[in-house]
Computed example of a mutant assay.
Amino acid sequence: MIIMNEKIKAAEVALTGLNGEDLGIVPRAEALETAKRLKADLVCTSLFSSPPPCKLVARGSAKQEAQKDKQAERKASQPVKVKEIRLTAQIEEHDYETKFRQSEKLLASGDAVQLVVKLSGSKEGPRAKELTERMLKDLAGVGKRETGIQVSGKQVAVRVNPL
């Protein structure tokens, strides 16, 4: 929450102007008068010092900024989504390019990617691991791997997180 204008209760405030210039320590009433004259809001930036530092901000922009900060905080607190990209060991070059672009787009948008290579025969393991390593190398610009390459009976998997 932001404290602004009449809600500031301190007798004196350390005032900063609209363009960041230091206006010194002034009485609260004078600071409010200056804010009114310049059609601005007086916003308290910290309550932990005496006198509290306050700044003049264009009217209405302080609330907008606080809303934007709250929205960004909410977005950051959401868990990372993991999207699965499925491949096969004998993938053709064009299909590989498509899956690569898909993965790149997902990582760029902030989602993690789980690369899964399905194995149809017992001899495809090394080929699938090679394919996974190639994909990891190509995606190095937008993501880094979180887990090692896991080779199980029917699939090879690795998780890549966005940078």
Rank of each mutant, 00 (worst) to 15 (best):
M4P: 03
A11C: 04
A11E: 15
E12P: 03
T16H: 03
L18W: 00
G20Q: 13
D22L: 04
L23A: 04
P27Y: 00
E30H: 08
A31R: 09
E33M: 08
T34E: 13
A35I: 08
K36D: 12
V43R: 10
S50L: 09
S50V: 11
S50Q: 10
P52A: 04
P53Y: 01
C54Q: 08
K55V: 13
A58F: 07
R59Q: 14
S61Y: 08
Q64V: 13
Q64I: 14
K70Q: 11
Q71A: 11
E73C: 02
K75Q: 12
S77C: 06
P79M: 02
V82R: 10
R86W: 03
T88Y: 03
A89N: 06
A89L: 05
E93K: 11
Y96E: 04
R101S: 05
K105I: 01
A108F: 02
S109I: 00
A112G: 08
S120P: 01
G121C: 03
G121Q: 11
S122G: 08
E124I: 05
E124F: 01
E124H: 05
L131M: 12
T132E: 06
T132C: 13
E133P: 02
G141P: 03
G143F: 01
V156T: 11
V158N: 04
R159E: 10
N161D: 09
N161K: 11
